[in-house]
Simulated assay, not measured.
Amino acid sequence: MPSITELCRELRQKQTPAEGLLWNILRNRGLMGKKFLRQRPICVKSVMVKYEYYIPDFYCDEAKLVIEADGPVHLYKKEYDKNRDTVLKSLGLIVLRFTNEEIEKNMGIVLEKIKQSL
């Protein structure tokens, strides 16, 4: 079983085209001077005193903002995504979800929504 660090590296290497487009804007403080990280694990201690990791596509610690780029696979994991968002929001994080299509075809609208959350 790969470590969480190895898994994050693998996810970064296998980014979708939509993730790549958004990352090109967010990286190097490219949006409003905020630092975003890509595929950074967030550790959560569960009630069973075990640790669970969530790996958002993009994360800005300063703004406590998680951004998810959802591809077709997310159509089959709606309940998981809903529960995950609930956990992340309980940590005081803001969660934004965009479809890959929204990112690819309406980047201006996507960036405006991100700016409003920053």
Rank of each mutant, 00 (worst) to 15 (best):
M1Q: 04
P2L: 14
P2T: 10
P2W: 05
S3I: 11
I4S: 04
E6P: 03
C8Q: 06
C8K: 10
C8Y: 09
R9G: 06
R9Q: 15
E10C: 03
R12M: 15
Q13H: 08
K14M: 02
Q15P: 02
Q15V: 14
Q15N: 10
T16S: 15
T16L: 13
P17S: 06
A18N: 14
A18S: 13
E19D: 12
L22I: 10
L22T: 00
N24R: 15
N24P: 12
I25T: 08
I25E: 08
I25C: 09
R27E: 06
R27M: 01
N28T: 05
G30D: 05
L31Q: 06
G33Y: 03
K34A: 11
K35T: 12
K35C: 10
K35H: 09
F36D: 01
L37D: 10
Q39Y: 15
Q39A: 12
R40C: 02
P41N: 09
P41C: 11
P41G: 08
P41Y: 02
I42F: 10
I42P: 15
V44K: 10
K45M: 13
K45F: 15
S46F: 03
V47E: 15
M48P: 00
K50Y: 07
K50V: 04
E52A: 14
I55Y: 03
P56Y: 09
P56K: 01
F58K: 00
C60L: 02
D61H: 05
A63L: 10
A63K: 14
L65P: 01
I67C: 05
I67Q: 03
E68Y: 08
E68D: 07
A69K: 00
D70P: 06
D70Y: 13
V73A: 10
H74G: 10
H74N: 07
H74C: 07
L75C: 15
Y76I: 01
Y76G: 09
K77V: 09
K77C: 14
Y80S: 06
Y80L: 05
K82D: 15
K82N: 12
N83F: 09
D85R: 11
D85W: 13
T86C: 13
T86K: 06
K89Q: 06
K89W: 04
L91Q: 12
G92I: 05
L93Y: 11
L93A: 12
I94N: 08
I94H: 07
V95L: 10
L96G: 04
R97I: 13
F98T: 00
T99W: 04
E101G: 00
E104V: 11
K105Y: 11
N106Y: 07
M107T: 15
M107Y: 05
I109L: 14
V110Y: 14
E112L: 05
I114G: 10
I114N: 04
K115P: 03
K115S: 06
S117H: 11
S117N: 09
